[in-house]
């Protein structure tokens, strides 16, 4: 919650979040019932897959957010020594398919001491670094949207560069970028399924890289009842939906809580 406090004074009522979280809970429940009824013998398998997917998502979204902040900030400083290399960073990472980045991680990381035991870290690093390019652009848009006068006013009070960042710039940036940040987080959540290309494991554990889609695929390949196949992937889809709704809910919570009264075209 500390990171949320960074955004400043609260407002809003929290009604949207309740709706959104209720939707997530209902869909999650549907997924749980589906799995319990249709695949009673592989419930544990599904649970591990879902937990790993969520873990991979949280790790890579957070890593992407942290790096993305510096990328977006650096790109908007106007200092060429900083912004040009970062432009290269963004263009290269955005220009390469995420699945290729995952495959590169798969062949490179074992060679630099990150063994298969740490495969979940490969996933987080690969997806997090990839996402940092997109989140960096989101941050850049946010930084560039802040009027110069805000910084001048802070400076005229005697605030330092980092005080201004902390109390003036960043709170406004975060409010502005919440919706596009939510976009990218949801994309990253779904893109954890790209880790399906990593090799499977004899044993399932948390944390591991056997994520939800891999679980579904493994089950499908082990099932000879062809009519079950669509149901397997449908169950996976419903689990993803429950999770994306959860992310939406968190974003909406933050949006509502930190809404500035009177600001915006649709302001009440």
């Amino acid at each position: 919650m500390r990171i949320l406090r960074l955004l400043g004074t609260p407002g809003g009522t929290g009604r949207r979040i309740v709706r959104s979280l209720a939707a997530s809970a209902i869909v999650g429940l549907i997924a749980a019932v589906m799995i319990a009824v249709l695949f009673p013998r592989s419930v544990a398998f599904w649970a591990v897959g879902a937990a790993n997917t969520f873990l991979l998502f949280v790790g890579s979204a957070a890593l992407g957010l942290a790096i993305g902040f510096f990328v977006g900030w650096g790109r908007s400083t106007g200092i060429r020594l900083i912004s040009w290399p970062l432009l290269g960073y963004v263009e290269v990472l955005r220009g390469v398919p995420r699945i290729v980045i995952v495959l590169v991680a798969f062949v490179v990381f074992p060679k630099i001491g990150l063994g298969i035991d740490l495969a979940v870290l490969w996933g987080i690093l690969a997806l997090g670094v990839s996402s940092s390019a997109y989140q960096g652009e989101v941050f850049r848009a946010g930084f560039q949207s802040i009027a110069r006068g805000q910084m001048e006013a802070a400076a005229s009070l005697g605030m330092t560069y980092w005080q201004t960042m902390r109390y003036v710039t960043l709170p406004q940036v975060m409010r502005t970028i919440l919706p596009p940040l939510g976009n990218e987080w949801i994309v990253v959540l779904k893109d954890t399924s790209l880790l399906i290309v990593l090799p499977g494991f004899a044993q399932l554990r948390i944390p591991d890289v056997v994520e939800l889609t891999k679980v579904a695929q493994t089950l499908q390949q082990a099932t000879f009842v062809v009519t079950q196949w669509p149901l397997i992937f449908a169950a996976a889809a419903v689990v993803y939906l429950a999770m994306t709704l959860l992310v939406s809910g968190v974003i909406q919570y933050a949006e509502e809580r930190f809404k500035v009264p009177g600001l915006g075209v649709m302001a009440a």
């Binding site: 001048e152 006013a153 400076a155 005697g158 409010r175 930190f258 500035v260």
Partner: peptide, 19 residues
Amino acid sequence: ERIRSQVGMVFQNFNLFTH
């Protein structure tokens, strides 16, 4: 910063912190 805090400034566009 210390110098700036000794001299107040009022701007044409107010520049209040919007949040």
